[in-house]
């Protein structure tokens, strides 16, 4: 069991394999996650993620070859709904929080969400 401070650093020193998350990886993940990261942040994140994955590496001590991954926390069958329409007929309800809305020539909001042009 690891506790704050020294024992954590001790554990880190014991690690035989150190996995390094480099800046290129950080940029790639940031791109996948659609999060803009600054140059300095990229550096920091690379260091932090390397640290975190070093620490996570201890899971490899456990042989899990014959273990099924957990599929659900609750032991029950999946519930279902009947095929009835009783929701969703109110456009304003889902549009009212939109940060931007298109408008018609008179300035009345249209029932659409809007994003910068997607080039196809």
């Amino acid at each position: 069991m690891h506790i704050p401070g020294d024992s954590f650093r001790r554990l880190k020193n014991h690690l035989t394999r150190v996995k390094v998350v480099d800046k290129a990886t950080v940029l790639n993940i940031a791109k996948l996650a659609r999060i803009k990261v600054s140059e300095s942040e990229t550096e920091n994140l690379a260091g932090e993620l390397t640290n975190i994955f070093d620490w996570i590496e201890q899971l490899n001590e456990v042989n899990t070859d014959n273990v099924e991954p957990m599929t659900s926390v609750v032991a029950m069958a999946m519930p279902s709904r009947t095929d009835e329409v009783n929701d969703g007929a109110d456009a304003e309800r889902v549009l009212q929080n939109a940060p931007d809305r298109p408008a018609d020539a008179q300035g009345n909001p249209l029932a659409f969400y809007v994003v910068p042009k997607v080039v196809e």
Partner: peptide, 21 residues
């Protein structure tokens, strides 16, 4: 009649965003 994971309608040709839960 309803969507895969919600109770909104699936009919074709409705007004925009009028079948959105």
């Amino acid at each position: 009649k309803a969507k895969l994971f919600s109770s909104a309608a699936t009919e074709f040709g409705a007004e925009p965003n009028s079948q959105v839960s």
